[in-house]
């Protein structure tokens, strides 16, 4: 049951990304292009999602635990560190350059587009590199 629910949850997320237009890199770049043919659609994607998650998360957090786990796994960091700022800045450059963020890129992997496939492969490589760097940084800090 749990496995089926997780699969369908991913499917709903993917359908949402497609319907909203997030899987079209041109639409993302047009949202970011205020001085061109600006397409404000993506503001509504974010707005529509937050309209559900803000009250939804608040209600869910009234529970002591989720259905299938002992505890909620919320991010624990609260300080603004160098990693957060540099990572977000680099992420934004890539997002603007390719028009894909991780969810829409993975969702689009079966469309047969070579460019999309290539993007997902280098994205995974970038993730592995970042993880390796974080492991090294944390090891050096602890020494």
């Amino acid at each position: 049951m749990r496995n089926f629910i997780t699969l369908v949850t991913g499917l709903i997320f993917g359908i949402g990304l497609i319907m909203s237009g997030m899987t079209n890199p041109a639409k993302v770049q047009n949202f970011l292009d205020f001085f061109g043919n600006w397409d404000p659609s993506l503001a509504l994607v974010m707005g529509g999602a937050i309209f559900i998650t803000m009250p939804g998360f608040w209600l869910v957090q009234k529970r002591k635990s989720p259905f299938f786990e002992k505890l909620f796994h919320f991010p624990t960091k609260s300080d603004l560190d160098f990693r957060l700022l540099l990572g977000a800045a680099i992420f934004g450059i890539g997002w603007g350059l390719g028009g894909f963020c991780p969810g829409p890129a993975i969702t689009s992997i079966l469309t047969g587009s070579k460019g999309t496939f290539l993007f997902v492969m280098t994205m995974i490589l970038g993730m592995v590199l970042a993880k390796s760097l974080v492991v090294t940084l944390e090891r050096n800090r602890d020494v």
Partner: peptide
């Protein structure tokens, strides 16, 4: 696209 993917993957995980 390859550079964009690399930056998106690296930046998202690092940040």
């Amino acid at each position: 696209l390859s550079i964009a993917g690399l930056l998106v993957g690296f930046g998202a995980v690092f940040g």
